[in-house]
Design a protein around this nucleic acid. Structure first.
Length: 336
RNA sequence: GCCGAGAUAGCUCAAUUGGUAGAGUAUUGCACUGAAAAUGCAGUGGUUCCCAGUUCAAGUCUGGGUCUCGGCA
């Protein structure tokens, strides 16, 4: 990954996209930026969109969200699944709204696909998931295995089959779903488009071992802050345990513990391991953002980085009013 | 102290009559467009506790040593 010491020049009306693995300090940097620039934070995290999941998803606190406008946090109950395609619509709306106010949208979050839905402006096949159909195909998958389902896809939609992993049941099911609903190939219903706004993509990184230590310590803190009670609260709401929200890191392991399947220490250990795996997964996702510039947070204070970004944000943009207002305010106080 | 069991990948453990040491997990990477904190694929990693012996060939058999666990004193 290319790393730099200073951000490149900006374009007016840019969206600042802030990516990186969990626990690297994205939220912290976004808040530091908010102290220096008129930003509004747009969530790009597939779990922080759900209510009642605050501690375990490391959601910004209520106080933090009161101090800076935040979008797309707590927008769904855990049993109302948010899909990427829905997310994309909401995120575009939030970004447009922020730009219209002359403020800077900061898209920040750890879900690579959500970020890519904006950065690569993905075109999604307009086929709403059909739970009944998926359940039927799941049954077929169990009976005949991935190979059997893949065979079927290869006959119906050979073009999509050619680029689909024959072992990945979930991807095969989605491809079949699209073909069975539309009669068209998934390959032809999707694509990337240039982004709608100028983007400045900033990646935060950190040596792996150090990152692991940070997220391990963070999980211990979460436990001390009541992650177990929060998980119990979700169980008491009687949600279907297969919901994506309840598969979230930490919650998933603690649910197993609360059901008596594993010990508490096993659950914690498992949650930590899974978080490490997730970090790996996030990196492979974010490496697909070729325009990103990466900053190593172990070499550099987040606050300094925020200061540098704020100073170099473009003149001639709608930020001018804010910048000059701030300068004249400083001038007044100096003169007094 | 005596008796028994054991020591193999970072961890937990497999390995037929002696015949190129494997799996899960960890770790690293990759794929993945309406489930993405999901799903799938792959790579790295070994002085088989140590020493000696038997044998064409030892994780495996023999002897000695070290350490661990359990039982008995």
């Amino acid at each position: 990954m290319p790393q730099t010491d200073s951000p490149p020049p900006y374009l007016a009306g840019s969206v600042l996209v802030l990516v990186g693995p969990t626990g690297v300090g994205k939220t912290q940097l976004a808040l530091a930026l908010a102290r220096r620039m008129p930003v509004e934070i747009v969530n790009a995290d597939s779990r922080q969109v759900y209510r009642y999941m605050d501690i375990g998803t490391a959601k910004p606190t209520v106080a933090q969200r009161a101090a800076v406008p935040h979008h797309l946090f707590d927008i769904r109950d855990p049993d109302r699944v948010l899909t990427v395609a829905e997310y994309q619509v909401l995120a575009v709306r939030a970004i447009e709204g922020t730009l219209a106010k002359g403020r800077v949208p900061v898209l920040t979050g750890g879900t690579p696909l959500y970020v890519r839905s904006i950065v690569h402006n993905l075109r999604f096949p307009r086929v709403v998931p059909d739970p009944a159909l998926r359940m039927r195909l799941e049954g077929d998958l169990k009976r005949q295995g991935a190979e059997g389902l893949f065979q079927r896809l290869a006959e119906l939609d050979p073009q999509t089959a050619a680029t689909t992993d024959p072992h990945n049941g979930r991807r095969i099911i989605r491809a079949l779903e699209i073909f069975l609903k539309t009669g068209k190939s998934k390959r032809h219903l999707e694509g990337t488009r240039p982004p709608v706004w100028p983007l400045y993509i900033l990646g935060l990184t950190c040596p792996r071992l150090q990152l692991h230590q940070r997220v391990d310590a963070r999980l211990d803190t979460m436990m001390a802050e009541g992650l177990c009670a929060e998980t119990r609260g979700l169980l008491e709401r009687k949600y279907d345990l297969t919901l994506p929200a309840l598969q979230a890191l930490g919650y998933r392991s603690l649910i197993q513990h609360l059901q008596g399947k594993i010990s508490l220490s096993e659950a914690i250990q498992q949650a930590k391991r899974r978080t490490h795996r997730y970090i790996r997964h996030q990196y492979t996702g974010f490496r697909r953002l070729e325009e990103a510039v990466w900053f190593d947070v172990s070499c550099r204070a987040l606050d300094d980085l925020a200061a540098q970004i704020a100073v170099s944000w473009p003149a001639g943009s709608s930020l001018d009013a804010w910048e000059t207002g701030r300068a004249s305010a400083a001038g007044r106080s100096n003169g007094a």
